[in-house]
């Protein structure tokens, strides 16, 4: 990638190359077809040689193709994005509170409320480009405890099962989520299972899932995706009133 070029531009350019590759392969198919038709006389040797050449070039084309694929590997782009996000977290926030950085080469700030509202607000359109909901109906995430100073049951794992999602037609920027929080605890004296229904919202502006307290203890769950890797998120149990985190779980999508 040359300097000043974004990943998407690179991808488009690569796609052009892919087109020429496809043409090459098509031409190759014609060659092979004609060869098959005339495979009858005593000119075997000549034909075999031609076939061999054809096979070799096919091989070379596939080699080149896989080289291109390796550069465009989505998993790799995701990993690079996650690392970039970690650096961005370390950097000073360039946008005021409750506003969102458009990203790309154009550091523009727009209100959080405008991200993924089906209306382009960023000059580069970034605010409407990444609007796939990672917590869809039927998805479930298993969280392993990092620390826990507040939950009632002190579980080792928590499972969040997304039961239903409601996207509001007039305000799609934060869909309503209905989930179940499954907690299984196994102490010396008893084994208990709890399935707490919880309502919440997903906010595209922060890639955050927020579940309102399912019990009367005022403990809510805040799930933070990094914006690139949507198979993991950091889940913090926070006091609804103070927004102070008192427990941390790392969630992984159940496949």
């Amino acid at each position: 990638i040359t300097a000043g070029e974004t990943w998407s531009e690179f991808a488009i350019r690569q796609a052009d190359t892919m087109k020429s590759l496809r043409l090459l392969l098509a031409a190759l198919a014609v060659v092979t077809a004609v060869l098959a038709d005339h495979h009858e006389h005593d000119h075997e040797a000549q034909i075999d040689k031609l076939l061999e050449r054809t096979n070799k070039i096919t091989h070379d084309i596939y080699d080149f193709d896989s080289k291109l694929d390796a550069r465009l590997d989505p998993a790799r782009i995701r990993r690079a994005g996650s690392l970039k996000h970690r650096v961005e977290e370390l950097e000073e926030h360039h946008c005021p509170e409750h506003s969102h950085q458009c990203g790309g080469d154009d550091p523009q700030c727009i209100s959080d409320l405008f991200v993924c509202d089906k209306h382009v607000d960023c000059r580069n359109g970034e605010d409407e480009k990444h609007c796939t909901l990672p917590t869809k109906e039927g998805d479930s995430f298993v969280g392993d405890v990092v620390y826990d100073n507040c939950t009632r049951r002190r579980p080792q794992h928590i499972t969040i099962a997304i039961e239903s999602v409601t996207v509001h037609k007039y305000y799609p920027a934060s869909p309503d989520i209905h989930a179940h929080i499954e907690i299984h605890t196994d102490t010396d004296d008893e084994e208990a299972h709890a399935s707490l229904p919880a309502d919440g919202i997903y906010t595209f502006a922060h890639d955050e899932l927020y579940l309102y307290p399912p019990e009367d203890d005022g403990l809510a769950l805040l799930g933070e995706f990094d914006g690139y890797d949507f198979d993991h998120f950091d889940g913090y149990i926070i006091h609804e009133s103070s927004h102070k985190a008192c427990a941390h779980f790392v969630f992984t999508r159940k496949k």
Partner: peptide
């Protein structure tokens, strides 16, 4: 004629591929 022609086709492919590389 066929053989020469097809060989030329393959040459062209090899050339195009080389340029892409």
């Amino acid at each position: 004629y066929f053989i020469t022609n097809q060989n030329l086709h393959v040459d062209k492919l090899a050339h195009d591929l080389h340029e892409l590389e």
